[in-house]
Amino acid sequence: MIAPAAVFLLGLALAPLTGGLIVRVKSLAAGRTGPPILQPYFDLARLWRKGTVRSTSTSWVFASGSVITAAATAAALALVPAGGVRAPLAFAGDAVLLVGLLALGRFAMVLSAMDTGSSFEGMGASRETAFSALAEPVLMLVVASVARASGGLSLSEMLGPGLPAAWGLHGASLALAAAALFVILLAENARIPVDDPATHLELTMIHEVMLLDHSGPDLALMEYASALKLWIFGALLAGLAVPVRTGWEALDLAAFLAGTAAAAAVVGLVESSMARLQLARVPQLVVGAGALAAFGVVLGVRA
């Protein structure tokens, strides 16, 4: 019996690893060795020990922004099951709270960016709110579709023991939902083709540009929150797309971890094989994912 709290701690501990895995896959695809897989941990530890430089333009909003973003994302993690293993907090409607907590983290990040008074950060904030306003309905449609297929109202039920049977009955609907979820994973976590985490030109960035004025522990908290968010989306995708529910929790958990690693590898392959889209094309991608999710719901409700 794996304690639900262990699922939460596992997520907190493993989250930065996903980013390391993605970089490793990209390096291999490019024929390089690349940095160590544990590099994100080293970076976080290094940033955490540094002092901060804060802009004179900022107020209490900036000082609390990184804390709120990290705390909200961590609280969201407490709602995410590890495949078939229940989350510490599971109740009817927890998926809505999950989406809401991620939105809170984003809101705090956007306000922190605007608190610096920098036009670049304002630009990033504006783009982030615009794209996430489009991504939120898609995510809720994915939730609706999975809830309908599995008959559960909480994430731990939706992705619980009934999932293999749901794949049997509503496979098409769930596949569409998983595809839409993958696109939203890319869009919400600032990955190619929506945003490029490796770029260093302020004008083209969305997520990274909001963090220009964060330094030391503030930056560490924001980076850690981004890692947690990537882990959350990876965990949801792995939980949905890898319906291994044997009843042996250790085996289920191993399948889940393999699923998250595979999700990271796919993200890495996508990043290696694609260029970033023009910003004006991003809404089309997100709306396309919305069409997939909506079609999944329509397929799911047929009597």
């Binding site: 002092g51 802009s55 333009s57 522990p217």
Partner: peptide
């Protein structure tokens, strides 16, 4: 913390 915390322009 190793470094000091300070403020500067944006």
């Amino acid at each position: 913390a190793r470094g000091a915390s300070r403020t500067g322009p944006t």
